[in-house]
Design a protein around this nucleic acid. Structure first.
Lengths: 119, 119
DNA sequence: TCTTGCTATATCCACTATAGTTATTACCAC
DNA sequence: GTGGTAATAACTATAGTGGATATAGCAAGA
């Protein structure tokens, strides 16, 4: 279905942006935690410095893929500096579309590179 | 840390670069044809200008993912300006690794965004 | 035939977006 | 105080993209 949301316009997602959306896919999180999650999940392969991380968060927020939200109630003991983010419906849709796009690429790659033809 | 081939160092592949490798996955092709193939395969969604196309080809060549090769014998009627390219083994491996990487991302995205948790 | 114009093919230059680096500030727990 | 947590800002590096340009070949028509 071509949902007229314009989600396509955000594709392809940059590596870090996609990773951030993935991290937020689990639910609300604050910036620092997002960075840690990415680092852990990628086994240190990706280690976003705060500079690039918050830059990317800002871009995503400005484009409406994520929003800044209140701290969760079970975090009142937490650090007041924390800025929490969650995916917007648009962000979720962009993710879904990006996944579709990638799946298409994978299918083509499989049929071509893994069963190479003579040149 | 690094894989034997160092193919990981080329990841993530940019959209256009990956598309070019996909196009060459079918076998040798010249630049212009690569552009056309991409445009057709993506139903016009991607319409690489010659500028970005040849720049990307140059980058891929400089990094050893593709090489410039002779024109095929059945092309002697073709335009002499044509520059033909083929995947190198490294290029093929980079493709394979990129596919693995993307599959990993997809798996994470599926489990998170398509079964969203309460934030 | 000459000219106009379109497709094919490629190069060069400049702009933009993204990411990385580094430094600074501030809070919190030990 | 020290060390980890959390965020901001200024700067740099560079990959990627896009636009303008050039040129050859071919087709259509004056």
């Amino acid at each position: 279905m071509s949902t007229p949301s314009g989600a396509e316009a955000f594709l392809p997602l940059a590596e870090l942006s996609f990773q951030i959306l993935l991290a937020l896919g689990r639910g609300r999180a604050h910036g620092y935690a997002v960075g840690k999650e990415i680092e852990e999940r990628t086994d240190g392969r990706l280690n976003p410095t705060t500079g690039s991380l918050y830059q990317a968060l800002r871009r995503l927020r400005e484009r409406g893929l994520i929003v800044e939200t209140e701290a969760p109630s079970d975090d009142d003991a937490g650090d007041a500096r924390r800025r929490y983010f969650t995916l917007t419906p648009l962000g979720r849709e962009v993710m879904a579309r990006e996944v579709s796009r990638l799946e298409g690429l994978i299918a083509v790659a499989r049929e071509r590179a893994l069963a190479p033809k003579r040149a």
